[in-house]
Design a protein around this nucleic acid. Structure first.
Lengths: 254, 254
DNA sequence: GACTTAGTTTCAAATAATGGAACTTCATGA
DNA sequence: TCATGAAGTTCCATTATTTGAAACTAAGTC
């Protein structure tokens, strides 16, 4: 924490409210805040006045609906997600499996759209969720197509947690994996993030060759195998190529 | 525009980028900004540094993915939307029509979750989308259960636009409608917002009797009638009651 | 009714934001 | 080739906002 300028401080506080995951009292925030009582108090007042944070009758703070409005605008004006929609529909219908569309933001994977085989579109329940880049199919596919400098920055701020026995936990192992992903043209998640969950992902490249997102097909070891997912890689690649051609060249910054 | 404090100014700029609906150049923003060149420039720099705004290679500004992450957190920590999910699933399955869950934020309707009709139909509203309160079913259902003071504030900032011939365009007409909604226990949208679109909505009340959201069943005049939607009102009310009982008493502030 | 805990306000000092103007690119076309 | 201008960036003395220790209020608790 500790950010530059008043706006940065306000966002620190906002992020703290977000991290709590439930409505929190002032005292709870104060306990783990780097800011003194009066400062924290006024920052929260400002956030409430702006609608970024809401306060219940008991005075507890939670994230406000203005964020939901703004995120909808962000999604709608993106050059990737709205364009990709029909392709996700088609892939989900053809494969009967779960399809993810992801982008990279500050070194993390952000899922920006999804189709669940069983259920219809449910936006925020899944959209906006974040995950680690180094142990997901979409994450590795995007990292593999990041310029060296951006990759370094992304790896720097990463701490490698071993989610499963298969998780790659060193930069060296990851770099070797990224090289083979570039060669194969697709990335596999061999239960590296969650046991029983496997996935095949391809990068989405803009016309200028820059990575702007990734597309993945996810299944469970109970229902499918890596070989079967890999067999669908060409189908994914075709969709990714079409999306990349249609999209504005808006790169993911890492 | 023109807001209090540095945070408010930064959010003004953010909102301007959102309003554009597409990546915009600095000069475009400057043309309609109340802030001088240097100030606007530095506000944008700050927003970019914070990840709320992203910049493409051409230097154009668009909303950043950090907003999508934050909105997901807002959605997940809400005391309403996650709890309501199974009921939306059930209502959509039973009726085969579109179901919306909405909340009121600063006098506007914000759709926080939805289920699409089983039959292939175009999207009316995505999650996070906003709409007017005075001419939608969910909006009127919520306005009807707002305390007088909050209703006044909501009406004040409302300008009544006549979307269709059926739209109520005066505070007096709306107040009469709200009274009859309170009596009936549900609100109808008689093509007041979009021609051909009808809807029946019920308020979701917390255990303390406060309005915290609304639930609606939407259809088209081609496929159904107001009478048929109204017949499902009891089913909606039952779901709303269950959700309201399970939810934390977190009122909508108007 | 003294004592703790949670939240709110004050005000002089410290800090950050402001904005007019000057400067740097970069594209255009005479 | 070199003027012309449009778009974007930086400077810096001035100005306004933010800061935070401490005092204060309100609401429990024993």
């Amino acid at each position: 924490m500790e950010a530059e300028g008043t706006v940065g401080k306000a966002l620190d506080v906002l992020e703290q409210v977000a991290a709590a995951g439930r409505p929190v009292r002032f005292a709870e925030l104060l306990a783990t805040s780097p800011y003194p009582k009066a400062t924290l108090y006024r920052l929260l007042q400002t956030l409430v006045a702006q609608g970024l944070v809401a306060q219940d009758e008991g005075g507890r703070y939670a994230l406000g609906l203005r964020l939901v409005r703004l995120a909808h605008a962000a999604w709608a004006q993106s050059s990737l997600a709205p364009i990709a929609r029909p392709w996700l529909d088609a892939l989900a219908a053809e494969t009967g499996e779960t399809i993810h569309l992801a982008q990279l933001d500050q070194g993390q994977v952000v899922y920006v759209d999804k189709r669940n085989a069983a259920r219809p579109v449910e936006m925020f329940a899944q959209t906006g969720k974040v995950g680690p880049a180094y142990c997901t199919g979409v994450g590795k596919a995007m990292l593999a197509h990041l310029p060296e400098e951006a990759l370094l920055r992304a790896l720097e701020r990463q701490s490698f947690h071993r989610f499963t026995p298969q998780t790659l936990t060193t930069p060296a192992a990851l770099r070797a994996e990224l090289a083979s992903i570039r060669e194969a043209g697709h990335a596999l998640d061999r239960e590296e993030h969650e046991p029983g969950i496997i996935c095949c992902a391809v990068p989405i490249l803009s016309r200028s060759g820059r990575g702007i997102g990734a597309l993945s097909l996810t299944s469970t070891t109970a229902r499918s195998t890596l070989e079967r997912l890999e067999a669908a890689a060409d189908r994914l690649r075709a969709a990714a190529a079409a999306i990349g051609t249609a999209a504005e060249p808006w790169g993911f910054p890492g």
